[in-house]
Structures are given as structure tokens and as C-alpha cells.
Design a protein around this nucleic acid. Sequence first.
DNA 1: CATAAAAAGCAACAATGTTGCAAAATAGAT
DNA 2: ATCTATTTTGCAACATTGTTGCTTTTTATG
Lengths: 139, 139
Amino acid sequence: MKEDITNILKRNSLSLTASREKILQLFLSNDGALSHGDIEKKAGERFDRVTVYRTLQTFTEKGIIHTIPTADNAVRYALCKDNCSEGHHHDHHVHFICQQCKQTFCLDDVVTPDIKLPRGYALSHIEVVAEGVCRQCKR
Amino acid sequence: MKEDITNILKRNSLSLTASREKILQLFLSNDGALSHGDIEKKAGERFDRVTVYRTLQTFTEKGIIHTIPTADNAVRYALCKDNCSEGHHHDHHVHFICQQCKQTFCLDDVVTPDIKLPRGYALSHIEVVAEGVCRQCKR
DNA sequence: CATAAAAAGCAACAATGTTGCAAAATAGAT
DNA sequence: ATCTATTTTGCAACATTGTTGCTTTTTATG
């Protein structure tokens, strides 16, 4: 784990710092996606809010994490698979929000479908968010 | 127009007030979706921020408008078609965000596709947001 | 026009996000 | 191991956004 973290940072030519390591660790040990608020809470009092903002921004730019749109003004972040790189995200999977536990998951195996847009629209990327009840909550 | 507004409010048993009329008018005369901030700006200094919040909440509950998730912490709202009713939205269309003009549009004719989820997930509703360049900006 | 009910406005506050700058930590060379 | 340039952090101050309780105003209705 500690090794994974070091690898990810090195691979993206980011220096190894306590906050980056901690935040990466949170993502690695967490099933679902995390909001800025989640991270602040889970990281404890140990990091400044500003540091968390900047770290998330850096990670997003580097393609280490990606954002997940929501209808509640609390963008979530989740780890990217290895095929994302600086400035270029290649996440084509569906996201799932559980209405019960409120967690957001990446359904890595569910690929976003093709959508046919009306004439005149240029498509660059599609985001699919499914809502319902997740596996754990359902039983 | 004024008549449409009155109709919508009456139909939903909402009293006719200046702010509700103004906000509805903004939606009716606007192509794209509007964020809370947009509405505050467009409505001028005439309404309290709190009133705008409460009006948007009421309209959403009544099924007059629906929310559109975003990755930038600025939820957009757009008018629902007539088939939405109190507590029950039936919007199954795709939304489009233009990267140039930053506007959000409802593509009323583009229906959200069916998505097959892994075993164990109960689906209640799917949201599709497409990003790219819109018709106006493209030419 | 009077009245009850609903909505708006106001104030105070909480939470969230941003910026500039000084202090601290890191990477890399010696 | 130590020094140094560079990067990152923490802090302070601030801006923006969202929330709540309460009073005043407006609306619907007889």
C-alpha cells in the first residue's frame, strides 16, 4: 500500500508529502468516491483545508483522480484507472449513487453507452450517473 | 407568457407572487438551464437570496423544474415538461453542457439509454450529461 | 375589506471556496 | 550528510454560497 502510494506519486512526478500520501491512502482504502468534505473529516485535523483543495486539484490535473458530477453541490472524486494521464482522462464508466448510504461508486465494468446527439452538436465526452440502492444496502 | 406563468403556478396550487413569476419568466425566456447564481444575477437586486433558494426548492418539489448534476458545484435547474408532477419527475432526456459558452441545455428529444447494472444493484433513475460544443458556438 | 395562511425579507450564522504570503519540507546536487 | 533552489504547506484574511428563526408583508378567500 505504502509502496503503491509512492509509485503513483513518483509516476506523476509529484513530490512525496504527508498530505498527498494521506489523501491517496484514503482513496485506496475506500470503496466509494469521496467529496472534499469527506476527506477533510477522514484526514482529521491534520491538514489545512487549503492543502486538501490544492491536493485534489493537483491529482485531478495529473489524472490520478477524476470528478463525478452530482445534483447536490458536492462533487465527488475517485481514483482513475491506470490509463489516465496528465490532462487526459479516459474514464468511460458509469457512476452509481446509493440513495440509502449516500455513497458513490465507480462501476468500472459498465461502459458509458454511445449517444446520438441532434445535428450540430459536437460531443467530447459523456457522463452517466445512475441512482438507486447499492449491493450492500439492498440485502 | 404572463398567462403561461399564471397557469403553471395555479396548476401547482402555488400563490402568485412577484418572485415566483419573475423566476418562472426567466426560465421560460431562457434557452438553457440556470444555476442559482444565474438567477440571482438576472433577477437583479429585487429579491432576497433566501427567496430564490426557497423558490427553487418549491419549484423542484412541485415538479416545475428539475436539477441537472454538474462537476463544478453549481447545480443547474431547467423547466420540466408537463408530465412531471409533485414528487415525481419523469425527465428522461439527456443534458448537454457546452464547453465554450458554458450553457446547459435539455436535449428533450434524446432519451436516456437503458443501462445494465451488475447483479445486486437496484436502479431507480439514470442521468446522462454530455459535454462538447453546442450548435450556436460551433459555427 | 377583514382575516388567516403563506411567502418574503432580514439578520445572523455556518459552511465552503479562494488568494497572497511567510514558513517548512522536499529533491537533488554536492 | 549537508546545502540550496524549488515546491508545498499552513495561516490569515476574505469572498461566496447556503441555512435558520423570526417578523413583516403579501396573497387568497369569504
